[in-house]
C-alpha cells in the first residue's frame, strides 16, 4: 500500500512540476492556462489519491475524495473564468505563424 501511495505521490508531483515548467516556457496567457489545467487535474488527482491510499479507507480518505471532486469541478470553472476574462479584454492569442507579438 505504501509503495502504491508513494508512486502516486511522485507521479502527481511530476505532473505538477511539468505544469510549472510549462507555465514558464509557454509563449502566451492562453497556452499557460493549459499548463495550469494539466497540473491541477491529473497532478492533484494523483496526489490526493496517493494520500487516500496511504490513509486506507477511513472517513478522512472519504473527505479527501470529496476534495478531489470539488477541485475537479472548480478547477475548469476557474480556468474558464480566466480565459473568458482574457477574451473579453481583447487579448489576441499567440500563433506560430504570426510571431511573438501576436499581431
Amino acid at each position: 500500500m505504501n509503495v502504491v501511495a508513494g508512486v502516486m505521490l511522485v507521479l502527481g508531483f511530476g505532473f505538477i512540476l511539468s505544469g510549472v515548467i510549462g507555465i514558464l516556457r509557454l509563449p502566451d496567457f492562453y497556452c499557460r492556462l493549459h499548463a495550469m489545467g494539466t497540473c491541477d487535474t491529473l497532478g492533484v488527482a494523483l496526489m490526493i489519491g496517493g494520500l487516500a491510499v496511504s490513509e486506507g479507507f477511513t472517513l478522512i480518505s472519504l473527505k479527501m475524495l470529496l476534495v478531489l471532486v470539488f477541485v475537479s469541478l472548480a478547477n475548469p470553472t476557474a480556468t474558464h473564468a480566466l480565459g473568458r476574462a482574457a477574451v473579453r479584454a481583447g487579448l489576441t492569442p499567440w500563433t506560430r505563424t504570426r510571431g511573438e507579438d501576436g499581431q
Binding site: Y30, H34, G37, T41, L42, N75, P76, H80, G83, V87
Partner: peptide, 24 residues
C-alpha cells in the same frame, strides 16, 4: 460540455454563446 472540454488538458473553453463554444 464546457467543463469537460476545459478539464481535458490541451483544450480550454474560453466562452459559451448559445450553441457555440469558443475553444482554445
Amino acid at each position: 460540455l464546457a467543463n469537460s472540454i476545459t478539464l481535458t488538458p490541451g483544450t480550454v473553453t474560453l466562452d459559451v454563446d448559445g450553441d457555440e463554444f469558443l475553444v482554445h
